[in-house]
Amino acid sequence: MNKQVFIQDLGYRDYRQTWIYQEQLFQSTLDIKIKNRREGANLETPNHLLFVEHPHVFTLGKSGNLDNLLVNEAELAAKNAKFYKINRGGDITYHGPGQVVGYPILDLDNFFTDIHKYLRLLEETVILTLADYGLKAERSAGETGVWLDVGTPFARKICAMGIRASRWVTMHGFALNVNTDLGFFDLMVPCGIKGKAVTSLNVELGKPSVDMGEVKHKLLRHFGMLFEAEILLQQERTAIKKTKV
Rank of each mutant, 00 (worst) to 15 (best):
I7D: 01
D9I: 09
D14H: 10
R16L: 15
W19R: 11
Q22N: 10
Q22G: 05
Q24N: 13
I32S: 09
K35C: 06
N36I: 08
R37V: 14
N42H: 10
N42W: 00
L43D: 13
L43H: 09
E44D: 14
N47Y: 07
L49F: 09
F51N: 07
V52D: 00
F58L: 13
F58P: 12
T59M: 04
G61Y: 02
K62H: 09
N68V: 07
V71F: 01
A74Q: 10
E75K: 05
A77N: 09
A77Y: 14
K79R: 15
N80Q: 09
F83H: 00
Y84P: 03
I86A: 05
R88P: 04
R88I: 13
D91A: 07
H95Q: 04
G98M: 10
G102R: 08
P104F: 06
L108G: 05
L108M: 13
N110G: 10
F112N: 08
Y118G: 11
Y118M: 11
R120E: 08
L122K: 03
E123H: 04
E124H: 05
E124Q: 13
I127S: 05
I127N: 03
T129Y: 02
G134T: 01
L135M: 06
A137G: 03
E138T: 00
E138P: 02
R139P: 10
R139H: 09
T144E: 12
W147C: 00
V150N: 03
T152F: 12
A155W: 12
I158G: 01
I163F: 14
R164E: 00
S166T: 09
N177M: 04
T180E: 09
D181T: 03
L182E: 08
L182Y: 06
M188C: 04
P190I: 04
A197S: 14
N202Y: 04
N202K: 12
G206C: 09
G206R: 07
V215S: 01
H217W: 12
K218G: 11
L219T: 00
L219K: 00
F223M: 02
F223S: 00
L226K: 08
L226C: 04
L226N: 03
R237A: 14
K241P: 01
K242T: 15
T243W: 14
